[in-house]
Design a protein around this nucleic acid. Structure first.
Lengths: 147, 147
DNA sequence: TTTTGACTTTGACTAACTTTGACCTTGTGT
DNA sequence: ACACAAGGTCAAAGTTAGTCAAAGTCAAAA
């Protein structure tokens, strides 16, 4: 078992005992014996939004990294949707998925309109068309995870 | 928890018990055990006008610092905010503006988190950093208009 | 066996937040 | 005027976390 898995295990443990794992990056790195940035790698690969985690952090004195498992109860459908979205997605597909979520009550009343506003071509007009679907996918997923 | 948070907590408490927090800078600093100017830092970062606070102060003998929570008109505040956002805006400013809107009840409960998710660096990771603030401004305004 | 490609590991550099202290400005009382 | 008593400003130093690209590992494919 490599470092990566050690770290992932440690975080998993923290998440088992409590609903949220909070720790200092350097502190955790020290406990495992790796460079701090390794923590970022593990978070990026194992605790990504796609896998159902939300990550917050703060730098400076008293800084921390906080990882929450996103509630799965009412949001399984949301999670499924997130997983279904690949690296890019067009507006029409987003609209369909969002409507679906709304219809099944997985997202609240006003959220649908807000989501579509955030990822519409109007909002993304500064993004070059070639990358627009990629950017849209990232925003879309990020929103759903935080709904 | 660092000094910063301690001080912010203390002030928050004062604001809970009364509608206005009034104290001497040196006195508060002494209570927490920090240099007086630290108080200014906390006020600047946590009790700024953007976050919905009004601060008055006076120097000299009997000097004081007074912090009031400010109530703002909810409906027009959104429009004001949209107008205040230029062609580009950084994440911190967005966060401050959004927190302010939320606090004054101009946007519904869950919307703050959702907005921040949509314009966070995580959502915009596919957007080149040079244009990120521009894209963010467009999305931010588009969302607010549709909230 | 060699090559390739996905996954890991590392560390130099960067960005964000905090803490401190020296020096400045303003108000009050003599 | 003068002295003292506040609060204000700002820049340097300290403390974290984030990013990115180079190097390492290892197993599957050629």
């Amino acid at each position: 078992m490599g470092l990566c898995d050690d770290i992932a295990c440690l975080i998993d443990e923290l998440l088992r005992s409590e609903d949220v794992a909070e720790f200092g990056r350097a502190e955790l790195a020290g406990r495992v014996g790796c460079v701090p940035s390794q923590i970022n790698y593990v978070i990026a690969t194992r605790f990504s939004p796609e896998r159902g985690f939300a990550v917050e952090s703060r730098r400076g004195g008293g800084g921390y990294i906080r990882i929450r498992r996103v509630a799965v109860d009412a949001g399984t459908l949301v999670m499924h949707t997130v997983n279904a979205v690949g690296d890019e997605i067009d507006l029409r597909s987003c609209a369909a998925l969002t409507a679906n979520l709304r219809q099944s009550g997985a997202i609240p009343e006003g959220a649908e309109r807000l989501i579509l506003a955030a990822i519409g071509n109007n909002a993304l007009r500064e993004v070059p068309p070639e990358t627009r679907d990629t950017v849209r996918a990232a925003i879309f997923k990020q929103i759903l995870i935080n709904v």
